[in-house]
């Protein structure tokens, strides 16, 4: 059990930031992203024994996160307060700065994309290698490259349009 906890902590440390970005990019909402990230890591914990000796653990975790995000229903009520509202992310007053504004705008633009595009672009922005993104999304690398090119263009256009407003 101690080893499992240690392994889980290592995995959490190595992947939580990107998983949070993925969930945030998908939902456009930090609280929901927090819930989804927690759900993802609960599933990671539950299935850790089955994946102990695999090489690409990050791909596996991304896939869990993607399925968790995709399965997240808007109609689904948030679980009881004591379950999910204790934010894993320490909340603190957001400093007002140009940088924060730009980040908020970027998330807002990502939320305007289609669901699959949100997932792909957050992985691209987090510099996940293309073969891994292809593996996670279940499409060929060639197809993925075309998609990424299109999404990058779409996101850039959205950002520039919103920035002018």
């Amino acid at each position: 059990m101690v080893n499992k906890e240690k392994l889980f902590q290592e995995i959490f440390q190595a992947n939580s930031k990107k998983i949070y970005h993925l969930c945030y990019g998908y939902t456009g909402d930090s609280d929901t992203a927090n819930d989804l990230m927690q759900e993802t890591f609960l599933k990671v914990w539950q299935n850790l024994d089955k994946f102990r000796n695999q090489a690409m653990i990050s791909t596996w975790i991304y896939r869990i996160a993607v399925n968790t995000c995709l399965s997240h229903l808007r109609v689904e009520k948030r679980q009881a307060k004591d379950e999910l509202t204790e934010n894993i992310i320490e909340s603190k007053a957001e400093e007002f700065s140009e940088k924060n504004e730009q980040i908020a705008l970027l998330y807002r633009c990502i939320s305007k994309l289609e669901e699959n595009e949100r997932i792909i672009i957050t992985l691209v922005l987090d510099e996940v290698p293309y073969p891994e993104i292809a593996e996670i999304s279940g499409i060929s690398e060639g197809n993925l490259r075309v998609k990424i090119h299109r999404i990058k263009h779409k996101l850039t256009e959205l950002y520039n349009r919103y920035e002018r407003i």
Binding site: F12, S16, Q38, E86, I88, K99, I103, L125, L155
Partner: peptide
């Protein structure tokens, strides 16, 4: 945009809390 993304502050993640939740 990628630079803006990379510049975002790392979320402070409390792994003990998630372990407790698990």
């Amino acid at each position: 945009l990628q630079n803006i993304w990379q510049d975002q502050q790392d979320p402070k993640l409390d792994q003990d809390e998630i372990l407790k939740r698990v």
